[in-house]
Write a protein that binds this DNA or RNA. Structure first.
Length: 414
RNA sequence: GGACAGCUGGCCGAGUGGUCGAAGGCGCACGCCUGGAACGCGUGUAAAGGGCAACCUUUCUAGGGUUCGAAUCCCUAGCUGUCCGCCA
């Protein structure tokens, strides 16, 4: 959630920041009006409530003194009727306000570059040089099938399209990657946490997936539970509704989960292979920080993911997302894109975001500093998407005969 | 899934109709003490919203009800615990 007070006090500036994130001016105006209506309704209600409280005190006093309360009772009853109406009105305003603000995205940081879509993202730097091949490198699905690592057909048989089965050395590589990533992150100071892969509505609202993106989520029939689209949801919401002490921050966590996404609207993109699956594995980094720590922790998280790729010997580049490509809750994001020789292009393998206090305001994650309760900052980043890492390993380390030489750092995990 | 018990501040815990946003303790902060610390002593310390402030409103799991007035009484839901059933 954005800070409504900021919009109220600093309308032009906040509105233009929101418009950089493709929010319509109509919606912003609507938000402002809704907030003002709500404030007025609250003030009216509270004034009358104060009167009611006073009358009630008086009533008790009259009773104690043995005075007649008939007249007072009439006044109190009338007042209560009005109060009931006012409360109803206030609730309506609250609902209206809620409906809007929960769908307003986070403000982008000032220095996030303007842009329409991923084409306007800005490359920060490249790490490692893409390998050259004396033959035409194959795409990963070809290699996966040839090595018997991934069975796309039988995944469809078991579930539906965009599900696959990994077996043999492929399955072992998957497990090795997960363990390697978790250990690597732990050595960088991220505590390993194992979390539920089903979460409730409140958790998804906290991190911003709901109410706006319900179509992207798998929901359990007959229960208010959803399959998580990312470990960011349970990890961040671990501290939902809590007031932490400043000294225990930053909290830096890593966790491995499966992730489930409907991929609604992705149309015919990446239908082949395991780039875009309904179920995939991911090792995630999540940090809860003080406001003044989040930039430094952000850098640590980006470095962690990038170094992980380097340790695996995977060429990649860092990209600053432009305003148009920034996610709903993110104030800034750096994507890591891994080189895929088969596709002859860089593809996203990690995304590190600072949401600042956007999620913390929704999830009520606060910390106490000098007697004050302040909203924490939350950050998340993949390190890494396991399926895509497998794709990258296959394509980058393929030999002419289709065999794959696995990175040496994985030796002890295989 | 069935029966019973419970849910109060950062945590524990007292509180059965107004004097209660709530005793006491822990924790935390500050001060004294100390070479420095621990211990001890003293003071302070729930959250959210509105207001420059005084102050006002709300909140004792949530929602509803009774009442002039609810942490307290009633109903419903959720969660937790215990026992039973089932089970990797």
């Amino acid at each position: 959630m954005i800070d409504v007070k900021l919009l109220q006090k600093n309308f032009d500036e906040t509105a233009s920041a929101l418009m950089r994130k493709k929010v319509s001016i109509e919606m912003i105006a609507e938000l402002k009006t809704a907030n003002e209506d709500l404030k007025t309704a609250k003030l009216t209600y509270e004034t009358l409530q104060a009167k009611q409280n006073e009358l009630s005190r008086l009533f008790g006093q009259y009773k104690k003194e043995g005075k007649n309360t008939d007249e007072l009772k009439i006044e109190v009853d009338t007042n209560k009727a009005t109060l009931t109406d006012l409360l109803e009105a206030q609730r309506a305003y609250e609902e209206a306000m809620d409906a809007i603000i929960m769908r307003v995205p986070n403000l982008p940081d000032e220095n996030v570059p303007d842009g329409e879509d991923e084409n306007d993202n800005i490359e920060l730097r490249k790490v490692l040089i893409p390998p050259t091949f004396s033959f035409t490198p194959k795409e990963h699905w070809e290699l996966a099938e040839q090595n018997g690592w991934i069975d796309f057909e039988r995944g469809v048989k078991l579930a539906k399209s965009r599900f696959s089965v990994v077996s043999g050395m492929g399955a072992r590589l998957e497990r090795a990657l997960i363990n390697f990533m978790l250990d690597f992150n732990r050595e960088r100071g991220f505590m390993e946490v194992s979390v539920p892969m089903l979460v409730n509505r409140r958790a998804l609202e906290g991190t911003g997936q709901l109410p706006k993106f319900e179509d992207d989520l798998f929901k359990v029939d007959g229960e208010e539970l959803f399959l998580i689209p990312t470990a960011e949801v349970p990890l961040t919401n671990l501290y939902q509704d809590e007031i932490l002490t400043a000294s225990e921050l930053p909290i830096k966590m890593t966790g491995y989960t499966s992730c489930f996404r409907k991929e609604a609207g992705s149309g015919g993109r990446d239908v082949r292979g395991m780039i875009r699956q309904h179920q995939f594995h991911k090792v995630e980094l999540v940090s809860i920080t003080r406001a003044d720590q989040s930039d430094a922790v952000f850098d640590e998280m980006v470095a962690c993911a990038s170094d992980l790729l380097s340790a695996l010997g995977l060429p990649h580049r860092l990209v600053t997302l432009c305003t148009g490509d920034l996610g709903f809750g993110a104030a800034r994001t750096i994507d890591l894109e891994v080189w895929l020789p088969g596709q002859n292009t860089y593809r996203e393998i990690s995304s590190v975001s600072n949401t600042r206090d956007f999620q913390a305001r929704r999830a009520k994650i606060r910390y106490k500093e000098e007697g004050k309760n302040l909203l924490a900052h939350t950050l998340n980043g993949s390190s890494l998407a396991v399926g895509r890492t497998m794709v990258a390993v296959m394509e980058n380390f393929q030999q002419e005969d289709g065999s794959i030489i696995l990175p040496s750092v994985l030796q002890k995990y295989l």
